[in-house]
Design a protein around this nucleic acid. Structure first.
Length: 571
RNA sequence: CGGGAAGUAGCGCAGUCUGGUUAGCGCGCAUGCUUCGGGAGCAUGAAGUCGGGGGUUCAAAUCCCCCCUUCCCGACCA
């Protein structure tokens, strides 16, 4: 490819719309342009990167035995009504009507469509296992799209769906995908980690998220410092702690006046006690009515855990009016004592300690020296808080630590959730009709590219891993009006092409500084500079983007050296 | 949906408070000359419904009202 025949539209200034680095660099390098919030056009440079990413994903999916298909983006409501997700999915599902007034939606995911396809196509255990995948556009009407393609509304996703005859085989399919994902992200040159995760609205029994490690990631990962346990914060379980309680020296409860002190911080400062001796009482609305969730003042409630304990999809914090109605006090003074008709769920940590401060369910009143389960009733104790640095690991008891990541892939064991709801069955060798045991497996393609950039960049721009760089090599003639330099550059260009190197020749009549800056910004792994030394003593500079190292080689050795450099990185 | 910020040439911004020549600057773009090892210099030029609608006024980018869009934080969410 010649620069003069390619469209590269780099920008010198950071776009005002972009805050995070990967977004800035994708816009500045000319990979993407925004059309509307969370909706992007992909330019030729970005398309090349996507292409290479997709190729790797496709190769590994095929290697794992999955078959590529294409499913429609526009989906009829009937299928979603069958799975009960037409109403359950929420506003992310963009619904609309066609000219005949029939309901449709844009597919945010494709479980319904694939299940429908398979139930009409597969009828025998002999046709299993089956894994079908596509790399296609999804639409999710996110409340707040952000960070460019990292959280877009319209985005490219690889989604795969496995169908098996039983749990055991489904487990095998799941493991195959797990391995394939590891292979994919390794080939993409990413530092990543697979973590246990909540299944969310997709449902199913078990899932892993693949996290690209990056400080700017939206997700918090909890991992063990000793064993290999790792989970999303939403899911991360806290190991058994020692719950010691000595009630012999317990003080009597005491009402205290706490005018205007509503937050944990205010109350703890006012009373001169540490936040860990306060109990936060949060009222949540659930489908079965309000519940009270109790955690220590220095802990945070984990709503995902709470949902899973309550076995419901939707809970939300009660608002000011509702709190007043239920507790006869404004927000900030809620406590478990005397709450009638409300289930009280307390975090395990509250099994320890006898001397807590709680809200008095009365304006400007708190109660001191309170012991859970003795001074007030607790319906159940369980793990409902977010894990923190230092908490014990569920598996081995060692300390947990937290870090940040970007979720680029998610694999689910779906079980028979969809196949049962939609009557997708096959006959086994004994003629029994059984529902497919399913799994589904997603990779956010654009997000993966963004995550790679987030992880691999410097002050000059993107440092693409060779596997997804838009070009392997850029050849820069310092002075494109110098016929001899240009001829050497052209010769090297052709030589590189013959060697199957994805090369671009910067034949623009630009100053060398601009060409270098663009090459760095775009993140081409290897740059070859043809200048006056190439003319005078056949010396070429080869610069490696990642390390910044400059190697001087002769014209004849240039391309072989480049090949060696690329092979060193190629996986 | 709550809080905050912003919409002026392709991009980045000034001008708005305090209404008043022809709406500016940098980058980019076009043409010419010189230059060419880390974003060159000079000259000439093209490019603007000042986000949209309404209002106030002799006069509106500037003041008032309504709306739209975008970004950030939160709530929410693969």
């Amino acid at each position: 490819m010649r620069y003069s025949q390619f469209l590269i539209t780099t920008l010198r200034d950071n776009p005002a719309e972009a805050e995070v680095m990967s977004h800035r660099l994708m816009v500045r390098s000319g990979m993407i342009r925004k059309l509307a919030a969370g909706i992007y056009s992909v330019l030729p440079l970005g398309q090349r990167v996507l292409h290479k990413t997709i190729s790797i994903i496709r190769e590994e999916m095929n290697r794992a035995g999955a078959l590529e298909i294409t499913l429609p983006i526009v989906q009829p409501a009937e299928l979603w009504l069958e799975s009960k997700r037409w109403n359950a999915y929420g506003k992310e599902l963009l619904r609309f009507k066609d000219r005949h007034d029939r309901n449709f939606c844009l597919g945010p995911t494709h479980e319904e469509v694939i299940t429908d396809l398979v139930r009409n196509t597969i009828s025998s255990y002999r046709q299993l296992p089956l894994n079908l995948y596509q790399i296609h556009t999804k639409f999710r009407d996110e409340i707040r799209p952000r960070f460019g393609v990292m959280r877009a509304r319209e985005f490219l996703m690889k989604d795969a769906y496995s169908f098996d005859r039983d749990e055991e085989n489904a487990e095998r399919s799941y493991q195959k995908m797990y391995q394939a994902y590891c292979a994919i992200f390794t080939r993409l040159g990413l530092t990543f980690r697979a973590v246990e995760a909540d299944t969310g609205p997709i449902g199913g029994s078990f899932s892993h998220e693949f996290m690209v490690l990056a400080e700017t990631g939206e997700d918090t990962i909890v991992s063990c410092t000793a064993c290999d346990y790792a989970a999303n914060l939403e899911k991360a379980e806290i190991g058994n702690e020692v719950f010691a309680r000595n009630t012999t020296s317990k003080k009597r409860m005491q009402r205290v006046h706490t005018p205007g002190k509503k937050t944990v911080e205010e109350v703890s400062r006012f009373l001169g006690v540490p936040p860990s001796t306060l109990i936060k009482t949060l009222i949540f609305e659930t489908p079965e009515g309000p519940i009270a969730a109790l955690v220590r003042g220095d802990h945070d409630v984990n709503e995902t855990k709470l949902k899973s304990i309550l076995k419901c999809a939707e809970i939300f914090l009660a608002d000011e009016d509702r709190i007043q109605e239920l507790t006869n006090a404004p927000r900030g003074f809620t406590g478990p004592l005397g709450l009638s008709g409300i289930r009280i769920i307390a975090d395990n940590a509250l099994r320890s300690g006898t001397d807590y401060v709680i809200g008095g369910n009365e304006q400007d009143v708190h109660i001191m020296h309170v012991c859970p389960d003795i001074d007030f009733h607790v319906d159940i104790f369980c793990d409902i808080r977010c894990a923190r640095d230092g908490d014990p690991c569920r598996r081995c008891g060692a300390r947990l630590k937290t870090s940040r990541g970007i979720e680029v892939g998610h694999i689910f064991k779906l079980g028979t959730k969809y196949s049962e709801a939609m009557h997708a069955t096959f006959l086994d060798e004994k003629g029994r009709e059984l529902p497919f045991v399913m799994g589904c497996y997603g990779i956010g393609v654009g997000r993966t590219v963004a995550a790679a950039i987030e992880q691999l960049h410097d002050e000059h721009g993107i440092i693409f891993p060779q596997s997804i760089a838009p070009f392997d090599l850029v050849i820069v003639p310092v002075n494109s009006k110098d016929a001899i330099q240009m001829r050497i550059a052209e010769d090297l260009y052709h030589e590189a092409q013959r060697a199957a190197i994805d090369v671009i020749l910067d034949d623009r009549d630009e100053r060398p500084g601009s060409k270098f800056a663009d090459a760095d910004l775009i993140g081409i792994p290897v740059r070859l500079t043809v200048g006056k030394y190439a003319v005078s003593d056949k010396s070429i500079d080869i610069k490696v983007r990642k390390t910044g190292a400059v190697h001087k080689v002769t014209v004849d050795n240039a391309i072989p050296f480049v090949i060696q450099q690329l092979n060193a990185e190629r996986l």
